[in-house]
């Protein structure tokens, strides 16, 4: 998905580092088909999410050449179009398709601008602005992560019953985390964790976005 940015910008001292908040087995077919030229890492325990306060995918952090954050964790250009899918046909209205594509295009243009211009890009934020936008952890989320660690450890051993109470506890303690919820939620025939409970959770957002609006000029 990020291959074009990698190809266009690698010559400008830029790289994508993609992290699958997922098991290796689940991520493997996607990586083998995409054959990205950027590193794609496997993070079964969602360690990255804990470090950077991520609660969904795709979320991105922009890090400059010196290892400083210039845009903290935010939605990486996804749009809530899927919520407008027709339940029967599975199709989105044309204007929603267009808006979804526009969100992605504007976001990737911003990434490209930063990839080429670095600190001079208007999308690379000043430290004060980065601090303001940081997504911080809280005690419940930190404890949820410890329970999630237990859950994934038991799941990797095939011990679903021993994992279950820790799945429940992690979800309860960190209800905003879609990554915890969907990683531990049953999948449909296509391999997606989008069953009834997921749809109910999304519907319960009401006016709030599943993919929060990115603070970049022109973003829908």
């Amino acid at each position: 998905m990020w291959q074009k940015a990698q190809e266009d910008l690698a010559g400008h001292g830029f790289t994508v580092v993609a992290v699958a908040l997922d098991t290796a087995d689940a991520a493997r077919p996607w990586i083998e088909v995409a054959k990205p030229s950027y590193p794609t890492l496997i993070d079964r325990d969602h360690h990255l999410a804990a470090l950077y306060g991520m609660i969904n995918v795709p979320e991105a952090v922009w890090i400059d050449e010196g290892g400083r954050i210039v845009r903290p964790t935010e939605n990486a250009g996804a749009f809530d179009g899927f919520r407008r899918r027709d339940v029967v046909t599975g199709l989105m209205p044309p204007e929603v398709v267009e808006t979804t594509a526009r969100a992605k295009r504007i976001y990737m243009e911003a990434v490209a601008d930063w990839g080429r211009n670095g600190a001079a890009s208007r999308h690379a934020l000043e430290p004060a602005s980065v601090r303001e936008k940081l997504r911080n952890s809280n005690d419940e989320a930190a404890l949820a992560q410890a329970h999630f660690r237990l859950a994934t450890w038991f799941l990797a051993k095939g011990e679903q019953a021993r994992a279950a109470p820790h799945v429940a506890e992690a979800r309860r303690l960190h209800p905003d985390s879609w990554t915890i919820f969907r990683q531990t939620y049953g999948r449909n025939d296509q391999g997606f964790a989008t069953g009834d409970e997921f749809r109910e959770r999304v519907a319960a957002l009401g006016e709030r976005r599943y993919y929060p609006k990115v603070d970049i000029e022109g973003m829908p």
Partner: peptide
């Protein structure tokens, strides 16, 4: 410059 991005299956 690192574009660090999460994804999942």
């Amino acid at each position: 410059k690192v574009f660090l991005v999460s994804w999942a299956s």
